[in-house]
């Protein structure tokens, strides 16, 4: 075909990948031809003006919130070009590379080093609620809270470990552990944070949404609870039902601690959501973002 061709932007996505044991965020712009663009970056924002391009997609924003990239925007301009914008939580070095093919892909790859700086000094106890003959709540179909709590905890640990945090689980299998032992474990390990994972249960099947309780004896607990609630809700798109102090957690003394119930297992919809493996990743990433918010800057 001729050189007068137009590039059609077909897709626009973002993910986190690992290379040589390190994590990177990337944004991919997929197109019918290689892009001809001008790049500009100012404070925590990377803009690309793509010439001779069309985007059939003319949507406003895509939420990413991966701990570095917050939002992506694609805009069709009147002069036949397209602007893409990547909004970041903070400035980060990046590189641009290109891969030929159908579709052609342009990658903008961001360094996530700052997240290592935030997480590597932290010692975090992650506590999967219930276990053994203490099943916790249960769903209208067949899910049990104790099993869900363990998966949530493992997934959260996975995210924190990637960035060098020192993490401990209060249980790694289906066993019953007294509440007191869980708190003592955090105290004896001199943990910086205590994160307990549960699901809510209610006799009323209409009750749904996210709950976060916090240790009123530790100064930053309430802030952490709010940060985690907002970040998890943003990821899972569930409502926040309640955030309040939880007197059980005062056993943690000065350790900031939260109990998170990301969903209500007794609700049909939310039990259903627990069947989707992506939900666990979303909750874990929300918790990760919440902790980052507490220790960043």
């Amino acid at each position: 075909m001729t050189d007068q061709r137009f590039t059609q932007i077909t897709n626009f996505w973002s993910d986190v990948f690992e290379k040589d044991g390190r994590q990177f965020s990337r944004v991919a712009i997929e197109s019918t031809y290689p892009l001809s663009y001008q790049l500009s970056s100012s404070r925590a924002n990377v803009k690309m003006l793509i010439k001779k391009a069309r985007a059939n997609i003319n949507y406003s924003k895509t939420e990413v919130y991966d701990g570095l990239i917050s939002e992506l925007t694609v805009r069709q301009n009147e002069a036949e070009n397209v602007t893409t914008e990547i909004a970041l939580d903070y400035d980060a070095p990046f590189t641009v590379n290109f891969s030929e093919g159908i579709p052609a892909r342009t990658f903008i790859v961001f360094d996530r080093m700052r997240l290592y700086d935030i997480f590597s000094p932290l010692k975090i106890v992650i506590d999967p609620g219930h276990g053994g003959d203490d099943k916790g709540g249960f769903g209208p179909v067949d899910l049990l809270e104790k099993n869900i709590a363990l998966i949530l905890a493992e997934q959260t640990k996975l995210y924190l470990d990637k960035y060098g945090a020192q993490t401990f689980l209060t249980r790694e299998s289906d066993q019953k552990i007294p509440l007191r032992d869980r708190f003592n474990f955090a105290l004896s390990n001199k943990a910086d944070l205590f994160i307990s994972l549960h699901t809510h249960y209610d006799k009323n099947p209409e009750v749904k949404g996210l709950f976060v309780g916090y240790n009123p004896a530790a100064a930053s607990s309430e802030k952490l609870a709010w940060l985690i609630a907002v970040e998890v809700a943003r990821k899972t798109k569930r409502d926040i039902r309640e955030i309040r102090r939880d007197s059980h957690l005062t056993a943690l003394k000065k350790i900031p601690g939260v109990i998170i119930e990301p969903v209500t297992i007794s609700n049909y919809v939310e039990e259903g959501l627990l069947r989707n493996p992506h939900l666990y990743e979303k909750v874990a990433l929300g918790i990760f973002n919440g902790i980052k918010g507490l220790f960043d800057g």
């Binding site: 077909t10 897709n11 626009f12 996505w13 997929e30 019918t32 997609i57 949507y59 159908i102 579709p103």
Partner: peptide, 9 residues
């Protein structure tokens, strides 16, 4: 054959 996923609203 190569396939092109298309993002929509």
């Amino acid at each position: 054959f190569p396939s092109i996923p298309i993002k929509t609203h």
